[in-house]
C-alpha cells in the first residue's frame, strides 16, 4: 500500500529525553525503526498516539515525540482501543513487552484481535521479565533457568504468532531489532493495515537473558520474504508460525487477503466525524422521543 503523504524527517519524532534502557538493549532498535517508519509514512507527531503498558519496553512513549500514554501493566490495548474509538483520525500504536502483552494482558490481546480494532501492536519480546530483574516470562523457553525457575521453566512457551492467527488477527509479523531496515518495513505495513496488526519483535535483553542473545537470534532467524512463502496462505503461514528450532522465521508471516473490517469502521457511531469532534447536543425532538418511550 503506498501512502499519499510526503515522508518527513525522522528527527521530528525524536524527543529531547534520551532512553534510559541498558546500553545495547534491543528496544533501541525497535524505537529507531518507529522513527523511520512514521517518518516514511509522513505522519504528523500530533496525529500519532503511542500507548504502552508497564515494563522496560513500555517506557517507549516517553522516548517518542508524539502524544503518548504510559498506562497500566497489561492494559495498553484496552486503553488504546478506547482512544482509537474516541478519535479514529489518530494513528494509534500500542507498545509493550512480552510480560505485559502475553502475560498479564493476554486476555486483552486475544480480544483486541477478535475485535479487530485498528491499532498496531508492537511487542518487544525478550523472553524474560527485565524491569523486575530477570524472572520467567510466558515466552521463556521450556527448561530456561531464571531467578524464579532455578531448576528450569516447567511450563510451555507461548507462541504469539500462532495465537494471533487463531484469534483472527489479519496482520501477523515478526521482526528482529538486529534487522532494523526489515523491521521498519514491517512497521510501515502494519500501520497501514486497516485493522489490528501484530508485530512481535525479538528485542534481546542484554542484562537478564543470557540465552536468547543477539548471536542466538542471528544464527537462527531468516526472512520469509526471501523464501517462496505466501503470507496470504493461512495454512502455510501457520506452519511458519509454529517453526521454532534451528531456523526461526521473521517477516510478514500472515496477511489475510480478505480482511474483516475493523470494529472502528463498523461501529455506527463512528461513520462520520470522530466521536471527539461530534457535538454533545441531542435535538429536542429526539429527547422527546426518548421520553415518550417511557410513557
Amino acid at each position: 500500500m503506498a501512502t499519499a503523504a510526503v515522508a518527513v524527517d525522522p528527527k521530528v519524532f525524536k524527543p529531547e529525553v534520551p532512553p534510559d534502557w541498558c546500553p545495547g538493549c534491543g528496544d533501541f532498535g525497535v524505537l529507531n525503526g518507529m522513527f523511520q517508519a512514521c517518518a516514511a509514512l509522513g505522519l504528523e507527531p500530533a496525529q500519532v498516539l503511542v500507548v504502552s503498558g508497564i515494563g522496560c519496553s513500555s517506557n517507549l512513549p516517553g522516548f517518542f515525540r508524539s502524544y503518548g500514554v504510559h498506562s497500566l501493566h497489561g492494559r495498553a490495548l484496552p486503553f488504546a482501543t478506547g482512544a482509537k474509538l474516541a478519535n479514529t483520525s489518530m494513528t494509534v500504536i500500542a507498545t509493550g513487552g512480552d510480560g505485559d502483552g502475553y502475560g498479564i494482558g493476554l486476555n486483552h490481546f486475544i480480544q483486541a484481535m477478535r475485535r479487530n480494532i485498528d491499532v498496531t501492536y508492537i511487542v518487544m519480546n525478550n523472553e524474560i521479565y527485565g524491569l523486575t530483574t530477570g524472572q520467567v516470562s510466558p515466552t521463556s523457553e521450556t527448561g530456561m533457568k531464571t531467578k524464579t525457575t532455578p531448576l528450569g521453566n516447567l511450563e510451555g512457551m507461548l507462541n504469539p504468532l500462532a495465537l494471533a492467527m487463531a484469534s483472527g488477527c489479519g496482520f501477523v509479523a515478526r521482526g528482529f531489532s538486529g534487522q532494523p531496515k526489515h523491521l521498519t518495513e514491517l512497521y510501515k505495513q502494519g500501520i497501514e493495515h486497516k485493522g489490528f496488526a501484530l508485530i512481535d519483535v525479538f528485542s534481546p535483553c542484554v542484562t537478564f537473558n543470557k540465552v536468547n542473545t543477539y548471536p542466538w537470534f542471528r544464527e537462527r532467524v531468516y526472512k520469509v520474504e526471501e523464501t517462496d512463502h505466501d503470507p496470504t496462505d493461512f495454512h502455510a503461514a501457520m506452519d511458519r508460525a509454529l517453526e521454532w528450532d534451528e531456523r526461526i522465521p521473521i517477516g510478514l508471516v500472515y496477511r489475510n487477503p480478505d480482511p474483516r473490517p475493523s470494529i472502528d469502521s463498523l461501529d455506527t457511531a463512528l461513520q462520520g466525524e470522530a466521536l471527539v469532534r461530534q457535538g454533545y447536543t441531542i435535538a429536542p425532538e429526539t429527547r422527546r422521543d426518548l421520553i415518550h418511550e417511557f410513557m
Binding site: V51, S71, L72, P78, G82, A86, N87
Partner: peptide, 17 residues
Amino acid sequence: ISVINMAIGAGHMGVRS
C-alpha cells in the same frame, strides 16, 4: 478491567465516557 481502561482511554481523548 478492559471496560474501565477503555473508558479512560476514550475520556483521555476528550469524549465524555
